[in-house]
Amino acid sequence: MEASSLQRVIEELKRLPGIGTKTAQRLAFFIMKMPTEQALGLSRAIEELKEKIRFCSVCGNLSESECCDICSNPNRNPRLICVVQEAMDVMAIEKTGQFRGRYHVLHGALSPIDAIGPDELNIKTLMQRIQQEPIEEIILATNPTIEGEATAMYLAQLVPSRSSCTVSRIAHGIPVGGHLEYADEVTLAKAMEGRRRL
């Protein structure tokens, strides 16, 4: 019979997305065999994550304080807001080092079949921001899926009714380093549509 503490770890790990019983058992045994320091380090990291991390009251990004590092940074352009679905998207865009504006995290996308409507997303605070902050452009960087497109279209209709700022959409097309012959028709058509003058 398995020790109850081991069983507890297995049960807790099974709650994670994509982790079934077998994987949970494998991970639990791996943790059990880890040096004590490392295992405790993992448990402390999870504890700290839950205690310290919260959502920024301005943009909804992950933060350790009331206002996240990006919103409180005076060197970021307050006139430019990039709207993304998830906090992970902020990390992806930040890695490029190309965007110097601020963000707004929606925490999801409109999905009729999943009953995710505008009220379930962080849209109300975005509307407050466009009225209170000196925003000139909103860049809609939601995913190019049907849900992401629906969210972008919704905001593109809503924002002009509340403010005079420009609304733009990130470009879609062939990934850098990709080959045209392997691109699907939809992506290729989008790339042609979004071509730019050199």
Binding site: P112, I113, I146, E149, A150, V186
Partner: peptide, 17 residues
Amino acid sequence: SFQGIREDLMQSASCQY
């Protein structure tokens, strides 16, 4: 791909229904 439908919020939501 029905791209035109995806570019109109009402049409997209109607088709998802």
